[in-house]
Write a protein that binds this DNA or RNA. Structure first.
Lengths: 191, 191
DNA sequence: GTAGTTAGTGATTGAGTACTAACTTACGTC
DNA sequence: GACGTAAGTTAGTACTCAATCACTAACTAC
């Protein structure tokens, strides 16, 4: 048994919960599964967090923050075309290296609606705020071009979905995205 | 008590389950909730379907089929720019009129990954096949332009996500999409 | 009208789940 | 080295949920 400070434990709970929630979503993940992955007893989670919902919220928030940080760091000092390419590459790397982060993103979006319908707007506000920050983080290095930013986010969402559905990288469905990347890098190729 | 043929009942179960699964996802929806909405006893669902999973599968399949039909019918006889506009409008109408269909789509994508991870590839194959059909259905009237089709799907996914997160229609996040629609309709405006 | 079939229900079961309460073990500190 | 505190556990509760079983009510064909 390795003892940790409550803060450190909370941290590892968030990481473990991210993996679990990414796979099973909110309702498909038991607190026991999270506890097992952390290596701690299940009731102890309720000392670290007030409830299951709070864990999910913490994970969702963390996920958005880190996604933002990826875009921020990858585009640092770059502008326009170069920033776009750098962010796209960073995103692609993130997806291939940590696919669960991608799944967690989808889970977050899906869970928001249920929460809103159930009258819980706290979760929705947090996610929308996080998304706006993400949007602005991308918006700035792209020179404030709204169309470009929207398009970047749109392709990102398509990638999320296709990857989530389990299309293998060599599937023809990806062709249009590779194509668009090429076009983006060399606009003269566009017809 | 209104008696129906098993086939008719299955049909109303699918419709009811679509609403329920759209809100709660697979694990967040109880068979009792579905049965209540249908107006039938919970155990009877298991006469009509072999299990809960089968109901979800039927709903997901139906959802993809109907989405495909919307694109097919709206673009009938049209090509290129006109077809794109018609499909976009049909999609927008669908979303505002039946938001649950949109949510169900997201739920489907999210659930696939869990099924795949659990070793159940039947669901994944069905969804990927359905998506490919959807893709081809859009691809054809767009003149076989891969980039255009991919872009269309990407914006669709972004719309799904933003709507799912509960951004109100007047929120500035939508601006880029309205903009892109304008550009698409009148390419000369694009810089 | 009665025999066979199909639609549908009530009661139940067994597994799982979020969360609580009471207890125990390790750590720092004076 | 005792004492207070913070980390962590074991046992248990109240509840939900998918699925089964045995049964009843309605339609249909003869």
């Amino acid at each position: 048994m390795v003892r940790m400070s409550a803060e450190e434990r909370r941290e590892s709970v968030i990481r473990a919960a991210m993996s679990e929630f990414a796979r099973g979503g909110y309702h498909g993940t038991s607190t026991e599964a999270i506890a097992k992955r952390v290596g701690v007893s299940q009731p102890y989670l309720f000392r670290l967090f007030p409830g299951k919902k709070a864990i999910f919220l913490a994970v969702a928030e963390r996920c958005l923050q880190e996604m933002r940080r990826v875009f921020e760091e990858s585009s640092e000092g770059l502008h326009g075309e170069e920033a776009l390419r750098a962010m796209a590459e960073a995103y692609a790397r993130l997806i291939t290296e940590q696919p669960e982060r991608l799944q967690m993103q989808l889970q977050t979006y899906v869970t928001v609606a249920a929460a809103e319908a159930a009258g819980d707007h706290e979760f929705g506000e947090m996610v929308r705020k996080g998304w706006m920050e993400l949007w602005d983080t991308v918006h700035l290095p792209l020179g404030g071009d709204i169309g470009e930013t929207t398009s970047f986010m749109a392709y990102g969402m398509l990638i999320n979905t296709l990857a989530g559905m389990g299309f293998p990288p060599e599937h023809r469905i990806w062709e249009g995205l590779y194509l668009s990347a090429r076009v983006k890098r060399n606009p003269d190729d566009a017809s």
